[in-house]
Amino acid sequence: MALGRGSVVVLLVCFFVLNSELVHAATYNVGGTVGWTFNTVGWSRGKRFRAGDTLVFNYRQGTHNVVAVTKEVYDKCSTPRRGSKVYRSGKDRVRLAKGQNYFMCNFPGHCGSGVKIAINAA
């Protein structure tokens, strides 16, 4: 089926609109040069995050982990629910969803010592 000139223009516009989100996606190293460690809780202050941005959690494997949690679990630093996504590689890459995103380390005492972040992605 042949496409008319108008159809080609519409397809190109759709292509650029759909891919513009990828062009604007950013990658953030959580905790900066120090990485995912104690007192990281304030690291996100002053930063603007968007859905599709990637957070990179760098830490020595076996010293921490990263668990995607609910606000309730985050606020209480409680044990995450069964089925929570747990990352353990030491070089974890997590793409942000639109809205609130909560992450913590669930090693004993780590969350309470600030190894947690809350990110609001527009």
Score class of each variant (00 low, 15 high):
residue 89 S to T: 15
residue 46 G to E: 00
residue 93 R to L: 08
residue 53 D to M: 01
residue 65 N to H: 12
residue 26 A to K: 15
residue 20 S to A: 11
residue 84 S to M: 04
residue 46 G to N: 03
residue 29 N to T: 13
residue 63 T to L: 02
residue 40 T to M: 03
residue 50 R to I: 04
residue 86 V to H: 07
residue 28 Y to V: 03
residue 22 L to M: 10
residue 70 T to Q: 04
residue 109 G to V: 11
residue 32 G to N: 08
residue 113 S to H: 14
residue 55 L to H: 01
residue 107 F to E: 10
residue 14 C to R: 10
residue 60 R to E: 14
residue 74 Y to A: 04
residue 27 T to P: 05
residue 59 Y to A: 00
residue 34 V to P: 03
residue 45 R to T: 14
residue 78 S to E: 13
residue 113 S to P: 04
residue 121 A to S: 04
residue 70 T to C: 02
residue 28 Y to P: 03
residue 97 A to F: 12
residue 122 A to W: 10
residue 98 K to P: 05
residue 90 G to L: 01
residue 31 G to Y: 10
residue 18 L to V: 11
residue 19 N to S: 10
residue 27 T to F: 00
residue 37 T to C: 07
residue 39 N to V: 06
residue 98 K to M: 09
residue 80 P to C: 13
residue 115 V to D: 05
residue 40 T to C: 15
residue 11 L to H: 05
residue 60 R to T: 15
residue 75 D to E: 12
residue 72 E to F: 06
residue 42 G to D: 15
residue 95 R to F: 12
residue 81 R to T: 14
residue 9 V to K: 15
residue 35 G to V: 01
residue 45 R to F: 04
residue 32 G to H: 09
residue 28 Y to C: 03
residue 80 P to F: 10
residue 27 T to S: 14
residue 76 K to N: 09
residue 20 S to H: 10
residue 10 V to F: 09
residue 20 S to Y: 11
residue 87 Y to F: 15
residue 62 G to M: 00
residue 28 Y to G: 04
residue 66 V to H: 03
residue 56 V to W: 02
residue 22 L to R: 15
residue 20 S to M: 09
residue 89 S to W: 00
residue 71 K to P: 02
residue 105 C to G: 05
